[in-house]
Nucleic acid binder design. Sequence first.
DNA 1: TATAATCTTGCACACGTGTGCAACAGCCAT
DNA 2: ATGGCTGTTGCACACGTGTGCAAGATTATA
Lengths: 339, 339
Amino acid sequence: MSNVSIKDIARAAGISHSTVSRALNDSPLVNAETKARIRRLADTLGYSPDAGARSLVMGRSHTIGVVVTTIADPFAAEVVEGIECTAYAHGYSLILAASNDNPEREIAAVEMLRSKRVDSIIVTSSRVGALHQERLHITGVPVILLNSHSQRGMPNAYSVRVDDFHGGRLATGHLIGLGHRRIAHVAGLEGHSVSTDRLAGYQHALATACLDCDPACVVPGNGQFDGGRTALEALLALRERPTAVFCYNDMTAIGLLSAARQAGIAVPRDLAVVGFDNIPFAAHVCPALTTVAQPMFDLGKRAMDMALALMGCQGNTPCDVTDVVLPGQLIVRDSTRTS
Amino acid sequence: MSNVSIKDIARAAGISHSTVSRALNDSPLVNAETKARIRRLADTLGYSPDAGARSLVMGRSHTIGVVVTTIADPFAAEVVEGIECTAYAHGYSLILAASNDNPEREIAAVEMLRSKRVDSIIVTSSRVGALHQERLHITGVPVILLNSHSQRGMPNAYSVRVDDFHGGRLATGHLIGLGHRRIAHVAGLEGHSVSTDRLAGYQHALATACLDCDPACVVPGNGQFDGGRTALEALLALRERPTAVFCYNDMTAIGLLSAARQAGIAVPRDLAVVGFDNIPFAAHVCPALTTVAQPMFDLGKRAMDMALALMGCQGNTPCDVTDVVLPGQLIVRDSTRTS
DNA sequence: TATAATCTTGCACACGTGTGCAACAGCCAT
DNA sequence: ATGGCTGTTGCACACGTGTGCAAGATTATA
């Protein structure tokens, strides 16, 4: 019924548990044949080492914590896959927590992860990132922010992100290059650096092209389908309609596309649409969505790589690279291409 | 730098660690004021209980393991969200592992979870489910299969799933009702009960309607976009073209839709298409996809509920319900609707 | 042969937490 | 004054694992 421990093995073999422990860890201190004998015994008894006990004495759990707003978001899912993949390759496992963009729950999640003694924490799209880093810095657990940079320059602030400002400029610049002069923006959730940076990139591109930034052209969104849907209504209600729109992300853009089709708005003829993320579905909606691609898998991989580096030299040299910024890439498809 | 333990608190308060332990667990055995004093002290010292140590002595980790083929699949993501949500509500956290549909990795993942002493394991879309249940049954860890039923009737076989056979009949029956007489099927990955059941439902529906099941009309797929894309090519190569196709899942169907658009095939006029799952994107492709909806979130929730029930009465009465089967629901959209 | 070097093993402790049992203080009733 | 009861605390152990140190066994060297 219960689990078999090294003491059980020791009893069965008539030796001390120390020797069993060393044998299973392939220590050179134990005789070759007894080592083989113990291993066979462990195998037949169905022994499984207790990771908790090991973590207790070794001080490392070989586990990292991942906090995500919701896993039911293709972007987050792809990022987590990148994390999981490289974590597995290095013998680490992954404990997942969702915050639902609720700061309170996010803090509870991080506290839970700390209690589980994870060796490192990766937080995606956080609104309270700086707070985590401040609180956890003392315990020695590295916290890596993914796609959210801490406002003030913290001492131990690690982050991996895409250059959202540049991405926003790319998307908007593309529309300007196509001749559009009245370009709208559907914003993301408030309070996230991702949202404000993309918005800033949008505004910067407009200003550079000597186009005025009509505040009415920036309508709120929530990063989901329905946000894009209601955003379209808001845009159609404007007395001077925009001819193009840059959406916070692909989900928003796809929701907006659906609404446009139902409203009889032709894309891209009546309205050109650009998204952000390049989630796998972006290429499969119609018209296929022009977007700024984020290297989602790579983002996760880089974050995990940084975690590994930080755990390797824990406390010693606090890693030479503390802030990885990857570029986004414009991918032009039919939602802006007048064939 | 390091973490503060109850012994540190005890030393600072000048009492024994036992009292601290009891105070923090709100035991009625300790004096009210000392309890308050200790709690304040723990708070200022930034105490965080060691979940591993607690798990060691208590025998429960308040953690459940989730094995998934890949998290970058909208279906799996939605299921995991359902699991996470109800797990969080009951104070459980969730450790995630991906198998990439590799049986070897899946077994390694389950072994890892066992080592982490999770209180229960949920495995989705497994090919080796029965094997897990056999191996883990002895250790007392309940293994719940999600969308894959064990072939032979195991004693402790727990599963939550959608009635795939019925779903396959629903989808195919819908097409038959529309007048189609030559209906193809794009299969899923081999070796999964999900795939074979949906195929069986398809065949049953054809047989019931006295239509012949031409084996050539069943083409292989992989549950991904590219599988649907290549499947369309295979269908177009048939000397007698089908007028409708039932796809293993929505991803396959969406890939097929994209390919059809590029090949100049009009859907649904030239080819009616039905998917399976009703992932959020199914409503946003064009034409909007007719599909058999799975209650993905609820599937995850039910599995977690079952896990909770099994852990509540561990070993005693092995839960009255061991196999939950939910119905799928046909959702008709434009990919089969000749407007 | 005596001594040193090497190989192998066990004892005892540590990690952080929970809990049965005993001990002690304070109080009340007899 | 004695006995019993209640409330509060500490001692000591347990959980499963790893490891420094010492001790024993074996072999090599002088």
